[in-house]
Design a protein around this nucleic acid. Structure first.
Lengths: 342, 342
DNA sequence: GTGAAAGCGCTAACAA
DNA sequence: TTGTTAGCGCTTTCAC
């Protein structure tokens, strides 16, 4: 229960009165600012708990122009990767005394622009954004008025703090593993044709890197563009995917959800995974351990990612003129049954 | 891009100056209050876009004590059901000009209490909470200072606006379907022994209702308590579940995630679903359509649920003395391959 | 129908 | 080291 002073939320003034000091001293105590005498500090702290004081976000925001609310913009919270990311960001934010509002962009430029250009007046103190459509050019003409961190795999100019995942390197790990386990006839699922900013692009490049080095081919016909990255789309692909002797023997999917769909469709057709064809996904969605066969995938270090992102927000708040930073978050290949013969 | 007045966010005063009126007139226009002359209104509206005015959340909050930020408290955003719920709430909230903060409680009493007793000073205008551990008694001694809506299946006193799902009725639908398709030897997975507030309790009761009416038995040994409701736990259960001739021929799981785990373990053991045993889940997680065999489950109408919940917040803000309301959201049995023989 | 003025809670600058 | 003062942006009386 929060105590109240005369049925009204307690304010710094109430605390000040109870402690027999001034409001600014209370403020100083609250922020550990300047040197407050130990005895006074103790008295103020006692008064704070006594009157049940909770700082008013409004007062603070109005006065100092910044808040402990940060917005996390992502395409769709229902996607396992993004909900896992949100979870980690929320946990980490709480440790830092921050609070997280979720903004869903559906990967649409206008939405991403709307979020990226949020005004401090909206009451938000920082932005974490996972851009899908925003290009470096879009971002260049945006002068964000909030500490803004870009999360993703693509480099997008150098005007922003960015947290990266090196998807191309991860893709090389995936392809190398597949080649090492005897796969030769590759397909790739999940590039939107002609779109360089989506999650597919770099992942495809990494696969190409390895195949080229191995003298293997990845013809255009083996690169299967998809309108989105969901399970349903994976099913559609899996239903027509040539597999076995005369078809592919490995299919790299740009997301776990695509892969889950592909697995489901292959099972429906009686195609045996991994014997006839290996399937891989991306992002290590929790469900991927529990589909049958369990899915080989790329895992990210979300704790590292969230900590880095929030660290950038904090650093930029402290020093808005700071040079934009970059952080590359580690990844790791998780080998499971969908690629493991025998 | 937001326009600025002299490099500083535009305020009502700026708008007022541009329109040649006073700040209060601007405020009146913004809120459609009192009668403002058409010509003046037009001038103000023009000025608003001209200076790129964005209302300051801080100013509003400070003055009027309420905000358009509502908090959604749930155990874990990574769970498919809760991320789907969050998605729908976020969408609906945006339509209403509101913004959503996610609070994760992990189903722990202290966390739930913390959220439920949030102060208006925190800058939040309302609370939507999915309580797991909070009892009617806990809630009774909480006098929330914010419009607070309870989301869930259990009745928890009558002091709060509540949005329900009739899980007991849904469970009857599930059991009826299983009996109608020839199942006789039931198991139930997912009750925490001795905990009446978890998701398992009512679902179990509904199953019992039907079995009793059918003259079938559900011995205590067939009610499998679980420490949580995740896939991992489902696997542990599925690994030892007696199935086939001498075992169960139907297993009702309290969540899709448990069911997915059970399916995975049964597949590993070579137990055929649905031929030897039928499996059902709860909540219609997106992945449940794509596991093999696809999962029979209970679907909720999240749009209805979110709209009702936010409607309660709005209504209570308008009239804090309002009698607490109740809304029952519909559910629907979704039959898929995991229970469908032939 | 419109404007002037006060004050919500807080903190930064300055004075003591 | 502590207190005084002013003002952040908004809305709401209350005059006019």
């Amino acid at each position: 229960m929060t105590s109240l002073v005369r049925g009204r939320p307690a304010t710094v003034k109430d605390v000040a009165r109870h402690a027999g000091v001034s409001a600014s001293t209370v403020s100083n105590v609250l922020h550990g600012r300047s040197s407050v005498a130990d005895e006074i500090r103790a008295r103020v702290e006692a008064a704070i708990t006594e009157v049940g004081y909770v700082p008013s976000a409004a007062g603070r925001l109005l006065r100092s122009g910044t808040s402990e609310v940060i917005q996390l913009a992502l395409p769709d919270i229902r996607s396992p990767y993004y909900s896992a990311l949100a979870h980690t960001v929320i946990q980490r934010a709480r440790e830092l005394g921050m609070t997280v509002v979720i903004e869903e962009t559906d990967g649409a430029v206008e939405q991403e622009q709307r979020v990226a250009s949020s005004h401090p007046h909206r009451g938000v103190g920082g932005t974490l954004i996972c851009p899908m459509s925003l290009t470096s050019d879009d971002l260049a003409e945006l002068r964000p008025e909030l500490p803004t961190v870009l999360l993703g795999e693509h480099t997008r100019g150098d005007a922003f703090d960015q947290v990266f995942i090196d998807s191309r390197a991860a893709a090389r790990d995936v392809a190398t593993h597949l080649v090492a386990t005897g796969r030769r006839r590759f397909a790739f699922v999940g590039t939107e044709h002609g779109k360089g900013t989506g999650p597919g692009a770099l992942r495809l490049e990494g696969v190409r890197d390895v195949l080229r080095a191995e003298g293997l081919d990845l013809p255009d016909s083996a690169v299967l563009g998809t309108p989105d990255f969901g399970r349903e789309t994976g099913v559609a692909v899996g239903e027509r995917l040539p597999a076995g002797e005369s078809g592919y023997d490995a299919v790299v999917c740009a997301t776990d959800e695509l892969a889950v769909g592909v697995l489901h469709a292959l099972a429906g057709r009686g195609v045996e995974v991994p014997r006839e064809i290996a399937v891989t996904g991306w992002d290590d969605a929790p469900e991927s351990r529990f589909v049958t066969p369990s899915l080989t995938t790329v895992a990210h270090d979300l704790d590292d990612l969230a900590a880095a992102a929030l660290g950038f927000v904090t650093a930029r708040r402290a020093d808005p003129a700071r040079r934009p930073g970059r952080h590359v978050s580690p990844h790791r290949l998780v080998v499971r049954d969908s690629t493991q013969t025998g």
